[in-house]
């Protein structure tokens, strides 16, 4: 058995698990951001969170499908990572501004 036979599946497994975790993290941050933005747009707090929660699963599905359909793994990681950072940082920035 070559070392390559072990490394290649391990790399694939790490990519799959890591990308799923990153997509989930990004979707969770997008849920928080969507809730906050829709609340600021005039929706009641409860409605805003409920809408964001329902959208969260659609976000996650789209991110997973998009991430796994990229030919270059690095692009999927960079773009999902960037989106996560953006969705995580925006509410904090907006709260500081407010």
């Amino acid at each position: 058995m070559h070392l390559r036979d072990v490394i290649q599946p391990a790399t694939t497994a790490t990519h799959v698990v890591g990308l799923c975790a990153l997509a989930y993290f990004a979707s969770a941050q997008l849920v928080g951001l969507s809730g906050m933005l829709t609340w600021w747009a005039g929706m009641s707090q409860g409605d805003a969170v409920m809408l964001a929660l329902m959208l969260g699963f659609i976000y996650l599905l789209l991110l997973l499908l998009w991430g796994f359909s990229r030919e270059r793994r690095r692009n999927a990681w960079l773009l999902l990572g960037g989106l996560s950072l953006l969705a995580w940082g925006t509410p904090l920035l907006l709260q500081v501004q407010a």
């Binding site: 969770a28 928080g32 906050m36 969260g56 709260q95």
Partner: peptide
């Protein structure tokens, strides 16, 4: 999935509330 939102996105209300 949507009916169990509280388990999958427990921190969703943090920013809004």
């Amino acid at each position: 999935l949507i009916v169990a939102f509280a388990i999958y996105y427990p921190d969703a209300p943090q920013h809004t509330y």
